[in-house]
Amino acid sequence: MLDINATNDGGKMNVTLDGRIDTTTAPQLEAVLKEKLGNSTELTFDMTNVEYISSAGLRVLLSAQKAMNKQGKMYIKNVCDAVKDIFEVTGFSDILNII
Protein backbone atom coordinates (compact mmCIF):
# COMPACT_ATOMS: atom_id res chain seq x y z
CA MET A 1 0.00 0.00 0.00
CA LEU A 2 1.16 3.53 -0.81
CA ASP A 3 -0.36 6.79 0.38
CA ILE A 4 0.44 9.73 -1.88
CA ASN A 5 -0.07 13.35 -0.86
CA ALA A 6 0.75 15.68 -3.75
CA THR A 7 0.48 19.45 -3.57
CA ASN A 8 1.44 22.01 -6.16
CA ASP A 9 2.13 25.52 -4.94
CA GLY A 10 3.30 28.11 -7.43
CA GLY A 11 5.12 25.62 -9.64
CA LYS A 12 6.64 23.72 -6.72
CA MET A 13 5.21 20.23 -6.42
CA ASN A 14 5.69 18.34 -3.17
CA VAL A 15 4.92 14.63 -3.05
CA THR A 16 4.87 12.92 0.34
CA LEU A 17 4.94 9.13 0.11
CA ASP A 18 4.01 6.65 2.82
CA GLY A 19 4.41 2.90 2.24
CA ARG A 20 6.03 0.71 -0.40
CA ILE A 21 6.70 1.67 -4.00
CA ASP A 22 6.46 -1.62 -5.88
CA THR A 23 4.82 -3.17 -8.95
CA THR A 24 1.39 -2.77 -7.36
CA THR A 25 1.73 0.87 -6.28
CA ALA A 26 4.10 2.35 -8.89
CA PRO A 27 1.31 2.83 -11.47
CA GLN A 28 -0.65 4.81 -8.87
CA LEU A 29 2.32 7.14 -8.32
CA GLU A 30 2.88 7.47 -12.06
CA ALA A 31 -0.77 8.45 -12.57
CA VAL A 32 -0.62 11.13 -9.87
CA LEU A 33 2.55 12.59 -11.40
CA LYS A 34 1.05 12.66 -14.90
CA GLU A 35 -2.08 14.36 -13.59
CA LYS A 36 -0.48 16.97 -11.34
CA LEU A 37 3.07 17.65 -12.54
CA GLY A 38 2.09 19.99 -15.36
CA ASN A 39 4.63 22.76 -15.81
CA SER A 40 6.10 22.56 -12.32
CA THR A 41 9.64 23.86 -12.10
CA GLU A 42 10.47 21.97 -8.91
CA LEU A 43 9.46 18.49 -7.76
CA THR A 44 10.31 17.20 -4.30
CA PHE A 45 9.63 13.69 -3.04
CA ASP A 46 9.51 13.26 0.75
CA MET A 47 10.28 9.59 1.36
CA THR A 48 10.35 9.68 5.18
CA ASN A 49 7.88 6.78 5.39
CA VAL A 50 9.00 4.72 2.38
CA GLU A 51 10.60 1.48 3.50
CA TYR A 52 10.99 -0.22 0.10
CA ILE A 53 11.23 0.63 -3.60
CA SER A 54 11.24 -1.93 -6.42
CA SER A 55 12.45 -1.62 -10.00
CA ALA A 56 8.95 -0.45 -10.97
CA GLY A 57 9.26 2.39 -8.47
CA LEU A 58 12.73 3.24 -9.73
CA ARG A 59 11.31 3.46 -13.25
CA VAL A 60 8.70 5.99 -12.12
CA LEU A 61 11.37 8.11 -10.42
CA LEU A 62 13.57 7.94 -13.52
CA SER A 63 10.66 9.07 -15.73
CA ALA A 64 9.96 11.95 -13.35
CA GLN A 65 13.66 12.91 -13.38
CA LYS A 66 13.69 12.93 -17.19
CA ALA A 67 10.61 15.17 -17.26
CA MET A 68 12.09 17.52 -14.68
CA ASN A 69 15.41 17.73 -16.54
CA LYS A 70 13.42 19.55 -19.24
CA GLN A 71 11.45 21.87 -16.98
CA GLY A 72 13.22 22.30 -13.66
CA LYS A 73 14.72 20.40 -10.73
CA MET A 74 13.80 17.27 -8.81
CA TYR A 75 14.80 16.41 -5.25
CA ILE A 76 14.35 13.34 -3.08
CA LYS A 77 14.59 13.88 0.66
CA ASN A 78 14.38 11.90 3.90
CA VAL A 79 15.43 8.58 2.39
CA CYS A 80 15.85 5.66 4.82
CA ASP A 81 19.01 3.56 4.76
CA ALA A 82 17.34 0.58 3.05
CA VAL A 83 16.10 2.71 0.14
CA LYS A 84 19.43 4.58 0.02
CA ASP A 85 21.17 1.23 -0.40
CA ILE A 86 18.88 0.39 -3.33
CA PHE A 87 19.67 3.77 -4.95
CA GLU A 88 23.41 3.14 -4.52
CA VAL A 89 23.41 -0.46 -5.79
CA THR A 90 21.40 0.47 -8.89
CA GLY A 91 23.41 3.63 -9.60
CA PHE A 92 20.38 5.85 -9.06
CA SER A 93 22.28 7.79 -6.40
CA ASP A 94 24.34 9.21 -9.29
CA ILE A 95 21.24 10.17 -11.30
CA LEU A 96 18.89 11.48 -8.61
CA ASN A 97 19.40 14.55 -6.45
CA ILE A 98 19.06 13.08 -2.95
CA ILE A 99 19.12 15.69 -0.19
Rank of each mutant, 00 (worst) to 15 (best):
L2P: 08
L2G: 12
I4P: 07
I4H: 11
N5K: 15
A6S: 14
A6G: 09
T7F: 06
T7P: 00
D9Y: 10
M13E: 03
V15F: 10
T16H: 09
L17K: 07
G19H: 01
I21S: 09
D22R: 02
T23L: 05
T25Q: 01
T25Y: 01
T25F: 01
A26V: 00
Q28G: 07
L29R: 06
L33R: 04
K34Y: 00
E35F: 03
K36G: 08
T41G: 15
T41D: 10
E42H: 14
L43H: 02
T44H: 02
F45V: 07
T48G: 03
S54C: 09
S54I: 08
A56Q: 03
G57V: 05
G57F: 06
L58K: 04
R59M: 02
V60I: 10
V60C: 06
V60E: 05
L61Y: 09
L62Y: 08
Q65F: 12
K66P: 01
A67D: 10
N69K: 15
Q71V: 04
M74P: 00
I76G: 07
K77C: 11
E88I: 14
E88W: 00
F92M: 12
F92T: 11
D94S: 15
N97H: 13
N97L: 04
I98H: 04
I99Q: 13
